[in-house]
Amino acid sequence: MDKFIKVTDVTKTYWSEDGKTETKVVLPLSLTIAEGEMVMFLGPSGCGKTTLMRIIGGLEKQDQGSITLAGDLLAGPDRRRGMVFQSYSSFPWLRVRDNIKFGTRYRKDVSAAEKEEITDHYMDMVGLFAYSDFYTNRISGGMRQRVAIARTLASSPDILLMDEPFGALDAQTREHLQFQLMDINKSEKKTTIFVTHDVEEAILLADRVVIFSARPARVVKEIDVNAVIPAEDRRNNTADMQKFFSLRNEILKIIRAEYRQTMETI
């Protein structure tokens, strides 16, 4: 496994406003992610998985440790790491197509004509051609997330960071988008980190699941899901359900144990 993203000994501590109490969010934590890999971050709520992803995205600064992307040391956010948020981040003053095109706005590697092509490509991929001229407050939450995903992909990041992107959606829309994301992932082969607290979502989408401990976050277990249930089967809805459920139960057991610890320390 080549080390496309390399997280080395990253720590993060939050201080209360009066500077007296500290909360360790991330302990010295190391992690590597291969190019093209889809990694799901799972863990009890408040464990620091989102913080870790935001650190990788450059939106928050680690106290110690380093993160490299294809060997380059990272500091601060840039176009190499695209982010999809849980809350709707599409711009209300732009129409759907202009929102997606916004993803290409700061690219210098493509011409104006290519930007139009790229926009159309991702409009098509997320199936929003019919809503091209709609403002985003007139489309559903699921569609808004598709706009956000398409916009991020249009900016051509090296890695895609998704922070519970389907967390606010209803179950049917969520499932639809999960399968759509699997299709996108198959055609784009984009290195992705996806934070979720939904175990089934994690198993469905992952190449690898990384389970974090209760805060401060450290890696408890990593599971190569492809070795248990082939991606092809999950995509085609033909996965061995026996294996699916036993994997789910195994993961739930770990998370529950971690969650109990959190409750005891509060």
Partner: peptide, 18 residues
């Protein structure tokens, strides 16, 4: 202005002025 808009801008490659 929602933080997500600004953070989206950063990760889409916009400068502070942009």
């Amino acid at each position: 202005v929602p933080t997500e808009y600004i953070e989206s801008g950063h990760t889409l490659g916009a400068s502070n002025g942009q």
